[in-house]
Nucleic acid binder design. Sequence first.
DNA 1: GAGTTTGAAACT
DNA 2: CAGTTTCAAACTC
Length: 558
Amino acid sequence: MGEGEGSDIPPKNVQFDLVSASNSKKLARQLDFNTFGGTPVTAPLPPLPEQSQPPVTLPPLPSAKLGKPESPKSKSRPNSETKDATPKKQKQCNCKHSKCLKLYCECFASGIYCDGCNCVNCFNNVDNEAARREAVEATLERNPNAFRPKIASSPHGTRDNREEAGEVLILAKHNKGCHCKKSGCLKKYCECFQANILCSENCKCMDCKNFEGSEERQALFHGDQNNNMAFIQQAANAAITGAIGSSGYSSPPVSRKRKGSELWPSVKDPSVSKLGQQANAVRGPGAPSSSLSPAPVARVGHASSGPSKFMYRSLLADIIQPQHLKELCSVLVLVAGQATKTLTDQKNLMDKHTEDRTETSLASSNQEQLPNQKEADVEKAMADDCSSANQTDKTSPENSSSDGTDASKGRPMSPGTLALMCDEQDTMFMTAAPSIGSMPHACNTSSQLPRGQGATEIYAEQERIVLTKFRDFLNRVITMGEINETKCSSLARSESEIQKDPIINSTLNARTAAAHQQGRATSNSVAKAVSNPTTSTSSLVPCSLVSENGEIKPKVEK
DNA sequence: GAGTTTGAAACT
DNA sequence: CAGTTTCAAACTC
């Protein structure tokens, strides 16, 4: 119908231009399109006639990758992008019956004109603007949000680093949700999967496997690497993404949704699943936060027979334990405190000659009480478990300022992060005209400090020492990793044999266990181990405790 | 490249 | 709103 237009080369490639200028609303729309059409190409179209669209509160912009898109590996289709990472080319549709005037058409749906597509009888071009406009109106009539991005990022607007590593965008979610039945939401038929996001409570899919913790999904991301020597590389990646604890298995960041949650989804009954899904949309308290929790290995019978039961361990697995980080934090705090004290003492000595006596004595008394205070903090931190270690506001309520910001973000920070943040906080502190008691425990040494020039020096010194310590720590971690890598590669070489030989495995396990034991050893024995990192895989903590220059011998006993 | 499968969109 | 049909992309062979 109406096809008079003849398939003779509809002028694709139209660079839309003006049309849009009509109103600002349209401009907003275009933005929408840009975000939506993964590869919007040239001119995102402004399809929209003035319409009744509710004022859009643009979703925080998911990332260009989100909307339509290309994703992992696309193939077939003579289309553009597939060729690897040099997309930038418009998605080309192949519509035959829709005239590219329905949402079936990707171009149309993306709000762009067809451009170099393989479509037949295309009306999605400037030459058919009238028809197109009509179609747009009709479409909007049916669904006012038809041209809006389907994927919205979370309010947090943050994305996980892993995105770049091929992981999903945990925090984004499909506005409407998918309705997949057979694909398990692990194929590009699924819009969520295609957008590289997890299914959410919005979805009405069946037998969904596109949720955090899904082994099938993980297998998809990682499993295919089983066969090659990517093993080591993979382990390295794992180390980067989450090497803490006994398992380096990647633990997807935040569990936004786990369908069926605690219960493994395989058992999931579609009808029931929705309930569980909704209920757990926010993640039930029972659902262990993934991050540091042990690998989901033993999770319910379901899977151990799964297609890719491949489990990889970080090269740093078993080396760094949560407690180590806690201790590292403690050490850094102590080191900083020590530096403060040292410097302050020096300064006091110098000041004595010129300054009022009472003031100096006051300062020194503060310094003296400092260590105790630190110890108290340290012990508190140690008492808390890794995840709670970041709740500095809890340990020092009065220091809400800088700490509160973190808490307000709702994003828990690891102890390591906190340690690292000491610098930043110090910096912020400096620039923000410090007031006593405004720093979190890790940095509240600063709060005890004299202000002004002297304080700046102290901060600098603190920073230097803390960074130095942390660097040392990282160096040791690297060393440990290298050692393990060596072991690993030899293991990989004889992998088959090893797998066949339980004895070897048990031996390795025993060794690991021994390492753990050793990790819990007293500071002294630990210190020894530190001196020769190659002899012990558990020497990390110790090394962090022992100051190389002997300036500090903090005791961080449990 | 043809044929099949899949799920969103459109339609009833 | 549920069921069915249409459609084009994804996928398989």
